[in-house]
Design a protein around this nucleic acid. Structure first.
Lengths: 189, 189
DNA sequence: ACCTGAACACCGTTCAAGT
DNA sequence: ACCTGAACACCGTTCAAGT
């Protein structure tokens, strides 16, 4: 799938690749729906965010979400699937994230809401990032660099780097987060 | 489509609804791909963010993104389509947004990057919000209220409101934004 | 210029029948 | 328990042929 896109996942094609007739799959899975959910759940479970113990809570939080982005970038078509079959939302991963927010000083009654907000921001970002590949208005000029041009109107032409954009997106949210939990500023900055 | 989902958009079905044979559509559109792009572009163009002139730049910025969220919530299946056929990204809308960021005091060399970050955050949010409807693990208990329960494990059960979550998501980013552009705080707060 | 009819190569799914 | 073969009702797309 990650080679040929989510649309390449076909009961007939999958069966053929397994050396079996397509009807045989229906003994193992009730429907394609169920099979897709299993795929999403399996790949979601592979998302193990290594708990970095070095660095400030803020830095570890950044690593946390960078790891999540990287994971989905490696499995673009599964994220595409997960739009229709949302994952069970890796319990371990969110547990690790919640702990980091706690260390950062987020009020305990805001922990869940804040982590969800950050998590959605990151996941949504990766979804949009991956949709660039099929955009008529975006042209890829490097692995993470894109030029946006609408109808060759030079007024709308602009270049951007998704790595830089992700950094900005994450930085804005985390800055806002630090602001609301600890009115204290890092010394020596 | 917004009634029966994006998968209900079928060349044969559309043709039937127009009282015509499916092959006839291919005189007007080269492919379903092109037709979908036209749908996305049309609905994207209908996104007119009313320029609220009252309130602080921050408040108007909030209105701006609330309007964008509301628009896509009214056309869920089109946003679903736009994952594969990204919109030309309403030029007027982003122009209005950039102006608001400018008024807020964002440095001009950061304007584009910051607006894109906010815009992606919001759009990604709505995408995820809409995917809840098909989630096996989420149950809708009110228009914007969901309960998350994984395998009936009471330890993972939690309720959340997407309106509140959106507010948090937006607030975090905007707080971070204000922090980086104007080190001045509102008087009398 | 615009549409039909029929065909082609695909889908997901079901189900009797095989082993 | 696990699979096949054949069928059903769908797809998107093409293309000669109609008006």
């Amino acid at each position: 799938m990650d080679e040929h896109g989510a649309s390449a996942l076909t009961m007939r094609r999958l069966a053929h690749e397994l050396g079996v007739e397509s009807a045989a799959l229906y003994w193992h899975f009730a429907s394609k729906d169920e099979l897709c959910r299993a795929v999403v759940d399996t790949v979601s479970a592979q998302l193990h965010v290594a708990s970095v113990t070095a660095g400030s809570p803020r830095e570890r939080l950044e690593h946390h979400f960078v790891a999540i982005r990287d994971h989905w970038r490696e499995h673009p078509s599964v994220l595409e699937l997960s739009r229709h079959y949302p994952p069970s939302a890796g319990g371990d991963v969110s547990r690790a994230g919640l702990e980091l927010l706690d260390e950062l000083g987020v009020r305990s009654d805001e922990l869940l809401d804040c982590y969800r907000a950050l998590s959605w921001t990151v996941t949504g970002f990766v979804m949009l990032e991956q949709s660039l590949a099929t955009s008529v208005h975006h042209r890829q000029v490097a692995p993470t660099r894109w030029v946006l041009a609408i109808d060759d109107d030079p007024g709308t032409t602009s270049v951007f780097d998704t790595d830089a954009l992700f950094e900005t997106t994450l930085a804005l949210s985390l800055d806002g987060l630090e602001l609301r939990c600890a009115p204290r500023v890092h010394p020596g900055d």
